[in-house]
Amino acid sequence: MLSWLPENIASYGDKIDSLMYLVYYITGTAFVVTELALIIFLILYRRKPGRPAAYITGNRARQALWTLVPLAVILAIDLSLDFKGTPVWNEVKAAIPPSNVLVQVQAKQFNWEVHYPGPDGKLGTADDLVMDNQLHVPVNQVVKVRLKSQDVIHSLFLPNLRFKQDVLPGREIDGWFKATKTGTYPMPCAELCGFGHSGMYGQITVHSAEDYQAWVRQQWPSS
């Protein structure tokens, strides 16, 4: 089932995907065990003349063990999931590593307005460049995205980068990713933002180091 996942090109994508696989195997096992038990019981214990049901209340300690032991196992699994998940979460969402590439994605009904800081590396200066729905980033570099919205809540979704972050009006939210493969990938909006939500769609282009330099030179020829 997980083979349906879009190709991963994020540095931290593996960690997310392997968590996904871990949950998949755990829940898959739980699914098979419980459904199988259910089906087997249904077949074995269907009504047969002359075979009365047993009187088992499950209130005695001995009987309750049948559920308490699996419960302890599930509790242990739960805690280990949390234990495994927390560092990944913190890596992806909590702390942003130092980065040389900064872009501001400003959402509005119904476009991604991508602001590039230009050679001075500062947003909000004269050499800023604004492109609609086109995000250009270099490969293998930490990209810091500053998310802003002009109107309602949007959500920047980069399926291949395992990146999703809601964009709130009146706030700046920083996110980051590091792409490991060049190419062009989808950049839809994932949060209902009005009648144009469907179709609020852009592209992220991951350039190789040289390509990226060329692209920069092309955009800011003077520098």
Binding site: T34, A37, L38, F41, L42, Y45, R46, R47, K48, R51, P52, A53, A54, I56, G58, W66, T67, P70, L71
Partner: peptide, 12 residues
């Protein structure tokens, strides 16, 4: 699990 255990040795 209690639901499933209810079916154990039942007469369904």
């Amino acid at each position: 699990m209690n639901w499933i255990a209810t079916l154990f040795r039942a007469s369904i």
